[in-house]
Design a protein around this nucleic acid. Structure first.
Lengths: 339, 339
DNA sequence: ATAGGCTATGCATAAGTATGCAATAGTGTT
DNA sequence: AACACTATTGCATACTTATGCATAGCCTAT
């Protein structure tokens, strides 16, 4: 190639020449697991420090046919849950010796537009936390043998693994709590309609209400933002028959609803119970003290890493969908049973 | 190499063979800017689709000596500002055709432990938003010709570029606002002590107070978390001579301070003004309506990308430190001048 | 008709590392 | 002393794409 050789670039060949061994030996020294004489290893490492040599992960990736890079697709989201989960995911990947190449479609970008680039970078696997995605594109990955894991969402019947909180059961828990506390006029503020998360929380909630003979809850549409929660709660509270309890599809919506209640002079929890879902850090702040369902985020991360490693080590592993139970966290925005 | 050839892997050679041209022609077709006959290009693209070919970015990186990957080091931080900035940075990178390899040191990990891995991946540049870092390690990057840009922090006198809000001027603006409103007993709640951000905000604040002849403010130490802000405000309000205005090193601290004031029955802004810094999304929520200094985040991102591109295109560009002015956002937690 | 010039393509090689196989040296056995 | 082994090391090549240089057409002008 005619490109000028970067004189500052130190390669394994330079180290080899400096020590008087072959490039193979340098490579084996840095691969650790090979058979290199202790004395040779010492000399190689010594020379590497002197020359300022660092192994080239790109070249290794090309040669080994694996990059140790995992792609993460995060949706744009105003909920703090996404970045929170992302940080944990990245740290989880580092723990299993992988790096995170992160993609977030911009406001004017489609999820599908970004996927080809992810493919080009030969990621060993892909973790998707984006709410909406057309699964057609994802089959490109499976065809290539690249495992895809959905995080905090799932699509039943697809050939992709998923790790998710048991949102249906979570919704049922909330229904039980509210009915036990004697609430009669219930409402649900929905998040993005096309997310499985929102669907399941609502389904568990309404199913359980039905089973226990309660009337159908009011439903208001929102998205996972504070502002939409605020606005949706306003619509609910302005009704002639306002609800006495609101279950929100996410904490961030619930915080908006709480502020709406406060601004409207509605006392929480005496006149209105508000329950969220996720248990984001803000939920525990004293200004809110939100009763909510906690997602078992650490367990979800650990399980995701486990599935990842399994599928990387044994590509024939079948995709699985794992649901982990959430925990009801009783704080001060919901009436207690018997009060 | 003895490793079994992955039969599912489609390379430019396969496409070339299928069309009956050379591998070079396929490469040139996907490089776009070269001279390939329209008819040939069409056939190549057609074959690529049929065979499911995607250019291999890893191989391209090796050959071209540039990866189009930019590393981002984010510190663990409980402030929502960090993930917010990170999302914008990633999108900014995508806009200029780069990918983001993100590193966040875990709780038990040092910043310096992660840097060698970043180096191995041959990132074209590195953006650092971590609060604390030993700049010795960063010289490895400069030696290798890899530009480093500090985001939202800077170290004067180092050979690294930086893009930062003008925190000193911001602190001065807050001092002026509080003095103009007639406040007498001022306090500052500090963030992490070793961050330039915290230092400068405090310096601007106290300098301006001094210039205008006000007495020295009380200073409480905290970190960039809600809980520490809450606790620090408690210590301040429990004094015999509690302050009538608190300037907090960051919004998240200010929100904690506000909740402390509310819990302690101190009326805001009648008895106490609270001012933050950053203008995170939560600052505008009706529960808080925090008066604060807005960081010009979009401009900061754009400028960062511009510096990046400049230094990548012309490696001899000198490192620069850019300070962008913040804007005072008056909401409802600070007394207005003349009231 | 032939030289000159332009376009489109192919050839050969470089980027840096990993690894199967062969080769070498050194140790112990009989 | 010859043979069998083991522990190290080197050689050669593969991974996939980019690109300088050479070449084959083909058109224009003289």
């Amino acid at each position: 190639m005619g490109a000028p050789v970067n004189p500052g670039r130190v390669t394994s060949v330079d180290v080899a020449r400096h020590v008087g061994v072959s490039q193979s030996t340098v490579s084996r020294t840095f691969s650790n697991d090979s058979t290199v004489a202790p004395e040779t290893r010492r000399k190689v490492l010594q020379a590497a420090i002197e020359l300022g040599y660092t192994p080239n992960a790109i070249a290794r990736s090309l040669s080994m046919q694996q990059t140790l890079i995992v792609g993460i697709m995060v949706a744009h989201s105003s909920s703090p849950f996404q970045p929170y989960a992302m940080e944990k995911l990245i740290q989880g990947l580092q723990r299993i010796g992988r790096q995170a190449l992160v993609f977030t479609p911009g406001p004017d970008q489609e999820f599908d537009d970004v996927l080809p680039i992810v493919l080009q970078y030969q990621v060993d696997a892909l973790i998707v936390t984006a709410a909406t995605l057309s699964s057609e594109r994802l089959s490109d990955f499976e065809r290539k043998g690249t495992p895809v894991i959905l995080f905090n969402r799932y699509t039943p019947g697809e050939a992709t693994s998923a790790v998710c909180c048991d949102n249906i059961e979570g919704g049922r828990m909330v229904a039980n709590l509210l009915l036990d506390a004697g609430h009669k006029r219930l409402a649900y503020i929905a998040g993005n309609q096309d997310s499985s998360t929102n669907r399941d929380r609502m389904k568990g909630f309404t199913d359980r209400l039905w089973e226990r003979g309660a009337i159908k809850p009011l439903v208001e549409q929102a998205g996972y933002t504070y502002e939409e929660g605020y606005a949706a709660a306003r619509r609910l509270l302005a009704r002639d028959d306002p609800p006495d309890a609101i279950f929100c599809a996410g904490d961030i919506i619930a915080l908006g609803a709480l502020d709406q209640a406060r601004d409207a002079g509605v006392k929480v929890p005496q006149e209105l119970s508000v329950i969220g879902f996720d248990d984001i850090p803000m939920a525990s702040w004293s200004a809110y003290s939100l009763t909510t369902v906690r997602e078992p985020i650490d367990e979800m991360i650990d399980l995701t890493m486990q599935l990842l490693v399994e599928r990387l080590e044994n590509p024939d592993t079948e995709p699985v969908i794992k649901l982990l139970p959430g925990t009801l966290v009783r704080r001060r925005t919901a009436r207690l049973p018997g009060s």
